[in-house]
Amino acid sequence: MVFFRALGSSQLRVNPHLVCAFSLGGIFGGSSSAVRHSSTTAHLLRRPSPSAPREAPVPLVFLSASRWDARSQTGMRDSAAWFAERGYTCLEIDLGHPDNTESSEALMKHYESELASHIRLLAIPFAPVIVARAGGTLIAQTYISSHPASALLLISPPPSNASLSATSSPKLPTPLPEFNFEPRFPCAVMCTESERPTLERENRLWKDPNVDKMVVPDERAVAGQEGLVKIEMWLDELGL
Rank of each mutant, 00 (worst) to 15 (best):
T198E: 15
I139K: 02
L60D: 00
E219H: 12
W234I: 02
L238R: 07
A84F: 02
S9Y: 06
L138V: 10
N161C: 15
L235V: 02
L91N: 07
E200C: 14
P98Y: 01
R133H: 11
T101L: 04
G26Y: 09
A70H: 14
A166S: 14
A140V: 02
R120W: 01
A6C: 05
P175Y: 08
G224Q: 05
R196M: 15
F4A: 03
S163V: 08
E182L: 13
R196Y: 13
V216G: 06
F185Y: 15
V215F: 08
N161P: 04
R36I: 09
A166G: 03
C191H: 11
W68G: 04
L107W: 05
P157C: 06
P173V: 07
R47L: 08
I231H: 00
E232T: 03
N180W: 02
F181T: 11
V58G: 01
E182S: 14
N210M: 12
P158D: 03
N100T: 12
F181Y: 12
V229G: 00
I124K: 09
E237D: 10
E114N: 04
H110Y: 05
S32K: 11
G87Q: 05
L12K: 06
F126E: 12
V35S: 13
F22C: 12
A116L: 03
D218T: 07
